[in-house]
């Protein structure tokens, strides 16, 4: 037993060092975001001193150049409404596909599953051109595209869960006079909650961080930039010139994610594990 506690002590120390290593890049960016932009490239690892400390200048600069708050708003808009649309519509689809068994529903189910293994590069060019033709190059259009592209995984996960719900519950509801819509919303949907949380978290993480789809569909020259697009826009066009604004913008982009993570860590970790196991 003594050997085991000694081992645990050593492991504890190693883990502490690893924690420091894991946090280093974020702390590095945070530290430099408070330094004058010229000092960042000269001595990137030096702590800010009285001479090099620039207060919030970098933040003001970065926010102005990219319209960060507008990007935050559009990111939030697209993420929230896409996730809601995915939850509502794919759970309904999954319910229908599981409970009605015929050639059409089987075919549709396999199409949704198939779409999960298709990489985005396969459809990105045609999808973005179609989006232009059909005027989907705006935030509501993005919600539609995310619903379509996220449908595969969501339908697959909901179907897996609905199969395990005993049919008797729904039959009882039907006998009590519910039509299929009432049965679904009053009886089935509440049971789906655990899977719905998983689906919501997986999709929220993906949509919030997604870069290529909003970039290709909405582009740089519109007011609808999301956060990843705004970051790429600032760095792509100002690049090495304004390191300060860049550091500040990176910090601002990470903060919402960390806040969200710390607030619902339990659900996120459970959701990610469940998603990985089923996906």
């Amino acid at each position: 037993m003594k050997r085991k506690t000694a081992w645990n002590g050593i492991i504890f120390v190693i883990l502490c060092i690893l924690v420091a290593a894991f946090l280093a890049p974020i702390l590095f960016v945070l530290m430099n975001s408070f330094k004058g932009r010229l000092y960042i490239s000269n001595a990137p690892f030096a702590l800010p001193t009285q001479d090099t400390f620039s207060g919030l200048a970098n933040y003001i600069n970065g926010v102005e150049k990219t319209g960060f708050f507008s990007a935050f708003g559009w990111s939030a808009f697209i993420t929230v409404f896409s996730v809601l649309a995915i939850l509502l519509f794919t759970s309904m689809t999954a319910y229908y596909l599981t409970r009605v068994n015929n050639g059409v529903t089987n075919g549709l189910y396999y199409m949704y599953v198939f779409s999960m293994i298709v990489p985005f590069q396969m459809v990105m060019f045609t999808m973005s051109k179609l989006a232009n033709i059909f005027k989907l190059n705006n935030p509501p259009g993005m919600v539609l595209l995310y619903l379509g592209f996220g449908a595969g995984l969501a339908v697959f996960m909901f179907c897996g869960f609905i199969k395990s719900i005993p049919l008797e519950i729904e039959e009882a509801a039907m006998i009590d006079g519910c039509n299929p819509l009432q049965t679904f919303f009053r009886v089935v949907m509440p049971i789906l909650k655990p899977t719905a949380i998983t689906v919501a978290i997986l999709n929220a993480m993906w949509i919030w961080n997604d870069y290529l789809l909003p970039y290709l569909v909405i582009g740089l020259s519109t007011p609808y930039k999301t956060i990843p697009v705004a970051v790429q826009y600032l760095i792509g066009s100002y690049g090495s010139k304004d390191m300060g604004a860049m550091m500040a913008l990176l910090v601002l982009s990470v903060i919402p994610i960390i806040v969200f993570y710390l607030a619902c860590q339990k659900y996120i970790i459970e959701g990610v594990v469940a998603g990985a196991v089923k996906g």
């Binding site: 519509f89 309904m92 689809t93 229908y96 549709l108 949704y112 999808m127 179609l130 379509g148 449908a151």
Partner: peptide
Amino acid sequence: PIFILPTLIAFAFAFILPF
């Protein structure tokens, strides 16, 4: 129409047609 079409329309624009 209610259960299948909304997802299917989005799926057609985002996946079936582009693919």
